[in-house]
Computed example of a mutant assay.
Amino acid sequence: MPRKPIPALSRRMFLIASAAAAGTLALPMGILAAEPEHPAVATLAFDGDALLAGGASLIRSDDGGHSWTELSAPEVIQTLATHSERPGRVLAGLASGGVALSEDGGRTWESRSDGLPAGQVDAVAIASQQPNMIYATVRDDGLWKSEDSGESWSFAMDRPWLEEAERNVLTLSSVDLATGMGGIWIYAGTEAGLTRVPDCFCRWQDVQPGDAMDALVSGDAPPSEAPLPEGEAVRALASSPSAPETLYSALPSGIWTSRDGGVVWSHLVEGSASAAAVHPSDPMQVVAVLDGVLQISRDGGATWTALAVD
């Protein structure tokens, strides 16, 4: 199948926001001047040590957020995913529909949307053990998968049923845990809470103690003793391959973390959190958007520092 290049957006002039003096986020003009329906930073991802921030534009920092470079963006980016075993590989879900793939850290892009239905792509993920296996959720449709890096797609399963309604998936994370079938869980944050499915795609299920087979038998496993807040939207999920049992989530109430694969959660910091990512080899290094400000923690969320362009 021929690959279709995506035309790059024109580069925008870089400006420094006056808010930098107050310790708030300062980003290039294209990020600051985002349209209201498209957040300034909708999604974050680590590509090795580099940090990517996507939304109305796309920027990359290769020095821990001290300086930024604006990259060509394949339209408005809704969500990003990377893989620790494939440096440079970046998967983007687009607000206008479809997905795009970069193999050079976000500098150039190719469309990988043939076979996907129309509609905004809210979440993407790359399988933790298989970098050519990718997942995408389409607004008001369901979960789709590709085994060839997006050259072709097949329908995997419907949207989760939570609180008496089918819910859109806002974020995905493929997590390598022994309790999953084949060692894999696909965690999904929805507009009404957290759910997950083993890689058999048998059934969406609550996060509970025990393995996948226990959870598939209704009532066989007890519910979590300390779940995320009931009914709250889970806007972002992040897991480091170096410590897959440690999860971070971004909710309207702040950043939460779990050290046991999502069974027990603790509240790290208050504020409206809309995006999060964790370093692939350092699970203590986390970035998040809190109350519209891009911040970084290097101690697992105990303390936070705002990032700004010098």
Rank of each mutant, 00 (worst) to 15 (best):
Q129H: 15
L80F: 08
R167D: 06
I184W: 00
A277I: 06
D299P: 03
P160Q: 07
V269N: 10
E147Y: 09
W204L: 01
R12M: 10
S240V: 07
C202A: 14
L52E: 02
E270M: 09
I77G: 00
L172E: 00
W265Y: 06
G115T: 04
T79P: 00
L91K: 03
S249Y: 05
R196C: 08
N168D: 15
M181F: 15
L237R: 04
L143P: 01
T171G: 04
V175H: 04
D148Q: 12
P227V: 10
V309Y: 13
V121W: 02
G142M: 00
V234N: 03
A302T: 11
E163G: 08
P36I: 10
S253P: 02
P7Y: 07
Q130D: 14
A192E: 08
S154P: 05
A226V: 08
I16L: 15
I186K: 04
G55P: 02
G271P: 02
L51Q: 00
I134Q: 01
L228S: 04
D49N: 12
D122K: 12
S258E: 05
A178F: 06
T82N: 06
S111Y: 10
A92K: 07
I6H: 08
T257Y: 11
G210T: 09
M284N: 12
A26F: 07
A308G: 11
S152W: 08
L25D: 09
M29Y: 15
A100H: 01
S253N: 02
R11Q: 15
K145H: 12
R159V: 05
P227C: 12
M29E: 14
A127V: 12
V121I: 15
S152L: 11
E103P: 05
S173M: 10
G64S: 07
P131I: 04
T305Q: 13
F155W: 12
S272Q: 14
M157E: 09
G30F: 03
G261S: 07
L101N: 01
P131K: 05
P244I: 05
Q130M: 11
L170S: 03
Q130Y: 10
L307D: 02
G189S: 10
M29K: 14
A302C: 06
S239W: 01
L52I: 03
S281Q: 13
V41T: 01
E164Q: 13
R86Q: 11
L9Q: 12
P117T: 00
A236E: 04
G55S: 09
P241M: 07
L228Q: 04
T79K: 04
T43S: 12
L228R: 01
L143H: 03
P28C: 07
M157Q: 13
V99N: 01
A42W: 02
S154V: 14
M13T: 15
W68H: 06
L44I: 08
D282Q: 12
G119L: 05
S242T: 11
G23I: 06
Q285V: 13
Q285P: 07
A8L: 12
A277D: 04
D104N: 13
A42R: 07
W265H: 01
H267C: 07
S242V: 09
S274G: 11
